[in-house]
Amino acid sequence: MSGLVRCILSFSLIIFLVNTTFASERKFNLGQIATKEEVAGWDIDVRPDGLGAPIGSGTALLGEEIYTEGCAGCHGDFGEGADRWPPLVGGEGSLASHDPEKTTGSYWPYASTIYDYIYRAMPYGDAQSLSYDETYEIVAYLLYMSDIIEEDFVLSNKNIGEIEMPNKDGFLLPDPRPDIKNTQGDPCMSNCQVSTKIIGKARDIDVTPEDDN
């Protein structure tokens, strides 16, 4: 190997080492580096393990008043729902029944998700208007109404990742689909044994907007 080739090879090796050792290079030089303040303003999500939960706390005792004022109009005084707005409490033991009722108490697997959703999207039409403490208070009140915590339990960023929700083990992973093992690309084409008896007509249910044809 000539000295020149050896020199180029070792030079390349150095570049390779530099590239893999340090952070990647910007390829297009587009966009701006985000400041910590910019990220902090928009990074509002809270993960099940509590990552991202802002410093704050609240109890159900404190949450009752703000819930009654700001939430009960749609969700009912006791989280039972109103009109077509969803109930937030109840439905325990209903998930395997004909009429499952999926509420924060019966279905939601993580308390963090309740916090995350209320803070980012509630009250409906006035998103991100609650303080951190107010949000903890409302979540605590909902958890209290579902008998998950006591009314004086202080819910906070330190323990929201540790609340055990009743349906935490209610979800199945991974996705088993395709779960229909039928004919794998070679379905019956003629004289197939199927029932062609009509057992229901949408027309008879009569919930379609406008007139039927």
Binding site: L95, P100, F171, L172, R177
Partner: peptide
């Protein structure tokens, strides 16, 4: 939600 009362999660496709 399945008849067992358990629900599949992350069913994306």
């Amino acid at each position: 939600l399945l008849t067992s009362g358990k629900a599949r999660m992350f069913t994306w496709v």
